[in-house]
Nucleic acid binder design. Sequence first.
DNA 1: GTCTATATTCCGATAGAC
DNA 2: GTCTATCGGAATATAGAC
Lengths: 187, 187
Amino acid sequence: MGRKVTVRDKILETAATLFYNQGYVQTGINQIVAEADIAIGSLYKHFKSKNDLLYSYLEQEDIRFFTTVEEKLAQKKTPREKLMAYIDFRIDQQKTGNCTGCHFIKINAEIGRTDDEVQQLVQKHKEKQKNLIKKLVTEIQPSKNNFDAKQLTEMIFTMIEGGVVAATINGNTRSLEDIKKLADKLI
Amino acid sequence: MGRKVTVRDKILETAATLFYNQGYVQTGINQIVAEADIAIGSLYKHFKSKNDLLYSYLEQEDIRFFTTVEEKLAQKKTPREKLMAYIDFRIDQQKTGNCTGCHFIKINAEIGRTDDEVQQLVQKHKEKQKNLIKKLVTEIQPSKNNFDAKQLTEMIFTMIEGGVVAATINGNTRSLEDIKKLADKLI
DNA sequence: GTCTATATTCCGATAGAC
DNA sequence: GTCTATCGGAATATAGAC
C-alpha cells in the first residue's frame, strides 16, 4: 500500500492493456501473470476470478477517463472551448493508443449484454459522457441553427461515438477531426 | 447444389448466428457442428479453418446487407425518402436482432486490425455504406443549412454508426430513431 | 509474496472407418 | 456425407511447499 506500486496495480494495469489491445476472451490468465511478472497465486488473492478482474478494469478506465477530462476542461474558460477540448481529448486518446477505440464500446461488442455488471458499467460510462456534452452544449446556448440543446447533444454524442468507431476501423482519426469542426459549426 | 439448402449453407448460417450473437472467439467449432447438426468432417471439407469461415461469414453479411438495402430503396421514389428508408432499415435490423449491433463493428472490435483480411472486409463494407449515403445526400441537393453534401454525409454516417452502437449498449433503438428525425431536419 | 504441480475442461484440427 | 477417436495445446482455477 501507500505510494508504492502495489502488486494489485501491476496486475490490473497489465490486464487493462491486454484486454484493450487483444480482447478480454483472447487474453489468458497465464499471459497476464507472465507479463505482469507476478505469481498466479497473487492474482487470485487480489481478484477472485477473471470476471472480477474485468469489472475492476472497467471501473478503473471510467475513473481514469473522467479524471483526465476534468483536468483538460479545467484549463479552458468558455463552454465552447471545453467542448472542443473534450473532442480533442478523444482524438488524442485514439492517436496515443494506435486507434484501438473506446474501452467500453469494445467490451460491449465482445461481451454484449450477456453480463449484467458489464452492461451497467458500460451504460453508466456512456451516460456520463453524454451528460457532460449536454451540460456544455446547454451552457453554450446555441442559436446558430434550428436545433435545441437536447438535439445538439444527441447529434454531437453519436457523431463522436461514430467517429471513434471509424478510427478503430480505419486506423486514423480523420473522421473524428472532421467531426470536431462540424460540431463547432453546428452549435 | 441447386435450389436445395446445402450443407455448406447450413454451416455458414449457423456460424453467422453464433458469431454475431456470442462473438467469434467465444464460438467453438464443436458448437457450430452441433447446432448445424452436421459432421465436423463436413465442416472442414467446406472450410479449411475457422478463420476461413469468418471471412465467408463477413462476405455473406455484406452481400445480404446491400441486397436488402437495394430492395428497400427501390420501393421509394425521392432520394430523401430513400435516405429515410435506409435509416429505417438500420432501425429494423436492430429491432429484429435484439439490438445486437452491426456485424462489422462487432467483429472489428473483437478482432481489431490484427487480421488484414478482416480489416479490409470491414473497411470496404463501411465505405460502401458511406458512399450510398453520399449518393443520396448529393441527390437531395441540400440547402436548408450551411453544410455541403460532403459534410452532411460525414455527419449522417457517423450519427448512424453512433446510433447503432448506442442501440447495442442500451438495448433499444431510441437514439437511432432520434437520429432519423435529426438527419431529416439537417438536410 | 514466490514457485510448481495438477485437476478439469475445452480448443482447433486431423485421420480413419462406414 | 456420417461417425468416433485422438493429437497437442491452452483455458480457468486450486492446492501446497517455501
